[in-house]
Amino acid sequence: MDSYEFLLYLGVMAGVTYLVRAVPFVLVKNKIENKYVRSFLGYIPYAVLAAMTIPGVFYSTRYFLSAVCGFVTAVLLAYFGKSLITVALSASLAVFVSGIVIDCF
């Protein structure tokens, strides 16, 4: 992908992202009443994140096994209500340590 093409894609990407944020903020003054639409919109973020995480997370590191270690660490810490940064960095640490252990064998 050359620079011109990159900027074209970036423009579309940033433009859509901006409009999705700003348009409702500027224009909409009333609350959406339809409960199905509200629910659909409310579920979207979790569905998106779940689809992006599984199974992608298991192939995000050199070893499948160390990715599993990172994943389990993240799920456990998140379950016990740790902050975003704690969960993210602990998962990294788990991948780091297990990666070195696997390298040793």
Partner: peptide, 22 residues
């Protein structure tokens, strides 16, 4: 690469930290 490898999962870690408590 050991370090890049480890930090590569951080973004997924954040996704997990949003989904699991909810």
């Amino acid at each position: 690469s050991v370090i890049c490898d480890a930090l590569g999962i951080a973004l997924y870690g954040m996704f997990i930290a949003i989904i699991v408590p909810a």
